[in-house]
Amino acid sequence: MIQLIVGTAAVLGALIIMAVFWKVGTSSMPRDDDYKHVAEAGYAIRRKYFWALLAVSLVLFIIGVLAFPYPKVMEAKIKGEPFVVKINSKQFQWDLSAAQIPLGPVRFDVTSQDVNHGFGIYDEKGGLVTQSQAMPDYVNKLYVNFTKPGKYKIWCLEYCGVAHHIMATEFEVK
């Protein structure tokens, strides 16, 4: 869902930017020799643009930080004790401590035995649910609140070598 909203914003934003460039580019004629006047008008618009950009950036920044997937944020959001699944990765396979997971809050403790991997959880429709990196010597604690039962797939999202694209497995939530 978040991907669709942001994707739509990305395309709409691109169209707006293109429209502005088109408008300015096609307004180059006729020449106005009073450049000072043109510049003053342009810089007046710039001031308004600055404040608009600041407002939009602040709102998006706050939304983004509140949506952080890190334990510090997620532990405050998730109610109840999470079901813990240990994820160990190595070229080119995933080892899960449980292949069947109950609905509700789950904490994946993700690490790697060899190189960097990316732990990406995909739903049955092929949409990316969430992700974290899997790095040797470090454990990424990824919280997910599963609300829909079904089969989920894990794909590697960090290039890890010649069979990176087939490093996948699945688990079931019920």
Partner: peptide, 22 residues
């Protein structure tokens, strides 16, 4: 123009990185 659009997309990627990283 491409720098502006590409930069805008980059900001979205950073702002909602869990949904788009890699």
């Amino acid at each position: 123009m491409s720098w502006t659009i590409g930069g805008f997309w980059a900001v979205l990627d950073a702002g909602f990185n869990n949904a788009f990283h890699n």
